[in-house]
Design a protein around this nucleic acid. Structure first.
Length: 724
RNA sequence: GCCGAAGUAGCUCAGCUGGUAGAGCAGCUGAUUCGUAAUCAGCAGGUCACGGGUUCGAGUCCCGUCUUCGGCUCCA
């Protein structure tokens, strides 16, 4: 798989967070997916105006680069979400310092206002042009346009081949383009990155020059102003400024440490989830962070998911003894055969191993003597000679470190929860059984994938597994979706999308578990639930998990960053792997369905999302510091009054601080505003005399003085109701 | 993991082609007693990410490591 993404059921996903994952039996070949996904000419023609403009800007960029470096080899130059890029091969490493020079050439090209001319031509002619190096070039060149050549060779027979010209520049291109280069009104190169040709690391590595383009300068400026604004909301920046979390090299990459202010947000989310789930009939459970290898063998996560798990902890020195064992096994002599014939079956027999495991050294020696009693004297001598450094450690392997005894940090909670299901005899009366846990999971994300709080190696999910009968499924699934919607409403998440991934009946038994009826049934029910609930969703065929249909929940933060908050999945395979059963009405044992769900995803990602969503201006109930009391001056009676108010608030679990510094009131306010404290209570002698407090709300300013009791009551109500 | 860039005080950053490490904010101390976004002064704060190398001399040049950031098919 590319980029070491775990081979999961379903396609490789970039910057996606997997709630939990079960490997497919058959890894999906990537190449097939690519072939399937090739865009048709018709699809290509469907470009929006801005995409068309940006695609043309990519041609202008190529033109400019060729003016400076005529030998550059171009690959693909599409429009992308916020601009365009062009991939090229060039010995000179283009750096941002080159941008000015390139942009100047681009400017010349747009000033010249060349027409974009489309030419349709036969395949052999296109091939010949590529051979002569004229595609993606300003004219004939000594070496062929190799990427263009490759692209032409991959164009299906019968599909029209076209090229576009602007001035001296000719490029293989399906189009479409704007009329003239002058239509590319305003542009700017933004960054340079690297990319493999066709995204395959076996292919040459190319330089990717990114830029953006707009109709005019005003729109371009607006775009960059928006980017500036977005930067201010970046959760990494705000996380530091607001003292929410930190990373430390000694702790390790991707392992966030939550400062008190950040932990306060976590506490609130936990409280929210616990209340909501309790009301919805969930039960809390707690499971360990570690488990034996055998658990993950049973769940099927090993070896498929191994790459994404931290390497195992091996109890005692199993590896070392195994090496002895391997060396010993390699010995090709009579001794080997004799001893092997006696001891190999012993070593491989778990019962014998367990027996040896309980022996003291003396007992073991006696046992060995008994086992070799039938051998000739010569063999016994030889055996004794090598027993000390070879054979006994080999046996001890069975005693101290069997191969199975490895422990892994858990990467998902489901196997543990399945064990809890299995811990008690279950009847249909126990279902649905909803087990919830804020469990800490560890995943070995690739170093290049780590990204602030969005992609970490230590994470806590607001996880739960619902075990139910097929009859209960629809109600349960609907309830889960209701919960999602409730949360969206609470957090004011307006832009979201649920991607409903279904199976392809043609791939049953390969990509998808061979349960045609269950697939049909659960997909139908899921579809109904989605339709009836008015949820914004799209159906994505052929992208289901191996074991059942799933829903990915995507949301967009205020700065347009996409978040895959959670996946919500149906699973009818894992309960079977774990032999989970309940006794049904008819006294037969049946396997439950399992729904995996985590509406808030992980603390880490969700808080990252919230930081950007609120730009750090959290609503009162979530604010790390809900109230700060700011006395005007530091006279004793005033400070006593301030402390009394703080104590009263704290008694009601309100996160209230007191600024008793010698700063002037203006400075105290500035400090509190900077830390985005939600409510500031300004106290002067006027307030003291009137038993009042002056309320100032972050972002709103002074809202006036009111009686102390009234203000406190309002604060408590607002927190209790989680008002926006 | 791969490619590229970056790492200087708690934070934000300056430090030119190698020549004794700097500012603002935060911190500490003192003064200031101020009614809604920054009162004044003084002090302290650094193994220039880490480890090697070149050099009379390295924050600066070279190599390696770590971390962070931007990317790694939204596809002629």
């Amino acid at each position: 798989m590319t980029r070491g993404e775990t081979p999961l059921a379903g396609p490789v996903q970039h910057r996606r967070h997997f709630l939990f994952v079960i490997p497919s039996e058959v890894e999906e070949p990537l190449a097939v997916t690519m072939a399937d996904d090739r865009k048709t000419l018709e699809q290509r023609a469907q470009m929006t105006d801005i995409e068309r403009l940006r695609h043309s800007a990519a041609h202008v960029l190529a033109t400019a680069i060729l003016k400076i470096w005529p030998e550059a080899q171009f690959a693909a130059g599409p429009p992308v979400e916020n601009g365009f890029y062009y991939d090229l091969e060039l010995d000179h490493r283009i750096s941002p310092e080159d941008f000015e020079k390139i942009e100047a050439e681009m400017k010349k090209e747009t000033k010249a206002n060349h027409v974009f001319e489309r030419v349709v031509l036969p395949r052999d002619e296109a091939l010949s042009m590529a051979q002569r190096g004229v595609l993606g070039a300003l004219g004939e060149r000594p070496s062929p346009s190799k990427f263009k050549l490759d692209i032409i060779q991959n164009i299906p027979e019968g599909e029209e081949i076209s090229l576009y010209r602007n001035g001296e520049f000719t490029d293989l291109c399906a189009g479409p383009h704007v009329m003239r280069t002058g239509n590319v009104g305003a542009f700017k190169l933004t960054h340079v990155a690297s990319a493999y040709y066709k995204g395959d690391e076996k292919n040459p590595q190319l330089q990717r020059i990114y830029g953006t383009a707009f109709k005019n300068k005003t729109q371009l400026d607006e775009y960059f102003a928006m980017l500036e604004e977005a930067k201010k909301r970046d959760h990494r920046k705000l996380g530091k400024e607001l003292e929410l979390f930190t990373f430390d090299d000694d702790v390790g990459p991707g392992l966030p440490l939550w400062l008190p202010r950040g932990a306060a947000i976590i506490e609130e989310l936990e409280k929210l989830a616990k209340e909501t789930e309790f009301a919805a009939g969930y039960q809390r459970v707690r499971t360990t962070n570690l488990a034996r290898e055998s658990l993950y063998l049973k769940s099927g996560h090993l070896p498929y998911y191994k790459e994404s798990m931290f390497p195992p902890m091996i109890v005692r020195k199993g590896e070392e003894f195994r090496t002895y064992f391997e060396n010993w096994e390699k010995e090709q002599n009579r001794l080997h055969e004799d001893t092997a014939s006696i001891f190999l079956p012993d070593i491989k027999d778990p019962e014998v191993r367990a027996k040896i495991g309980g022996m003291s050294t003396d007992e073991m020696n006696r046992w060995i003597e008994q086992r070799i009693a039938g051998m000739g004297q010569e063999a016994v001598n030889e055996f004794n000679r090598m027993a000390v450094d070879n054979f006994i450690p080999t046996l001890m392997m069975g005693q101290v470190a069997p191969v199975e005894d490895r422990y892994y940090l858990k990467a998902m909670n489901c196997p543990h929860h399945h064990k809890l299901f299995a811990a008690l005899p279950r009847s249909y009366r126990d279902l649905p059984l909803r087990l919830a846990e804020y469990g800490t999971c560890h995943r070995y994300e690739q170093s290049g994938e780590l990204f602030g709080l969005m992609r970490v190696r230590s994470l806590q999910m607001n996880d739960a597994h619902i075990y139910c009968t097929p009859e209960q499924f629809e109600t349960e699934f609907n309830a889960v979706n209701e919960m999602y919607l409730k949360y969206f409403k609470l957090f004011g998440i307006e832009k979201y999308l649920m991607r409903f991934s279904t199976h392809d009946p043609a791939k049953l038994g390969q990509k998808f578990v061979d349960e045609p009826e269950l697939w049909k049934q659960t997909e139908e029910m899921t579809r109904n639930v989605l339709k009836n609930s008015g949820i914004n969703f799209v159906e994505v065929p052929n992208e289901a998990a191996f074991y059942g249909p799933k829903i990915d929940v995507q949301a967009w933060s205020a700065i347009g960053r996409e978040f895959s908050i959670a996946t919500n999945q149906v699973d009818f395979a894992q309960p079977r792997r774990f032999n989970l059963v309940y006794k049904d009405r008819d006294n037969t044992e049946k396997t439950p369905l399992c729904i995996h769900r985590a509406p808030l995803g992980t603390h880490e990602r969700f808080i990252g999302f919230l930081i950007e969503h609120y730009a750090g201006n959290f609503p009162l109930w979530l604010a790390p510091e809900q109230v700060r009391i700011l006395p005007i001056g530091d006279e004793a009676p005033l400070l006593d009054y301030a402390r009394a108010i703080q104590n009263e608030l704290r008694a009601h679990q309100v996160r209230a601080e007191l600024d008793a510094s010698s700063d002037h009131i203006k400075a105290k306010i500035a400090n509190a505003e900077q830390m985005k404290v939600h409510t500031m209570l300004v106290l002067g002698n006027r307030d003291l005399e009137a038993s009042a407090v002056s309320v100032r709300i972050h972002g709103k300013g002074n809202v006036g003085a009111r009686p102390r009791a009234e203000v406190i009551a309002d604060l408590l109500l607002s927190i209790k109701e989680r008002k926006a």
